[in-house]
């Protein structure tokens, strides 16, 4: 597990996650995310290297999204890896990831 942080420009960072996002890595990853949230106005999280994601990992992403929203930080998740997509689909979080209240696509339609 590691997170590569590339400081793009002023107050903007690109985070590439490699390896798993699970209960085992959640604590470390949270620290990194928290730091980045402190220092930036824009965050890009590249999920292409996520090999495995479990509830703790998902919860962490939900957490980051909420924090970002509250601090008016622009957050974008990019390059979702297959495991991430699978979880987002399972929970119908898909494209809507990041709504203040997480609602699924189906829900919007009804």
């Amino acid at each position: 597990m590691s997170i590569e942080i590339k400081q793009l420009k002023n107050a903007a960072a690109h985070l590439a996650i490699n390896g798993e996002m699970t209960i085992y890595t959640a604590l470390d990853q949270k620290t990194t995310f928290s730091e980045c949230l402190e220092n930036n106005k824009e965050l890009q999280i590249d999920l292409s290297g996520v090999s495995e994601i479990d509830s703790a990992g998902l919860q962490l992403l939900l957490f980051v999204k909420r924090e970002a929203n509250e601090r008016h930080i622009k957050l974008s998740l990019i390059h979702h890896s297959q495991p991430v997509v699978e979880v987002f689909e399972l929970l119908n979080l898909g494209n809507h990831f990041g709504d203040p209240i997480v609602l699924s696509a189906n829900w919007k339609k009804t």
């Binding site: 928290s34 919860q59 399972l90 119908n92 997480v102 609602l103 699924s104 189906n106 829900w107």
Partner: peptide, 13 residues
Amino acid sequence: KDVLTFFPDMPKD
């Protein structure tokens, strides 16, 4: 058919 995920008690920061 649908899943609602919510986390009302998640503490801040």
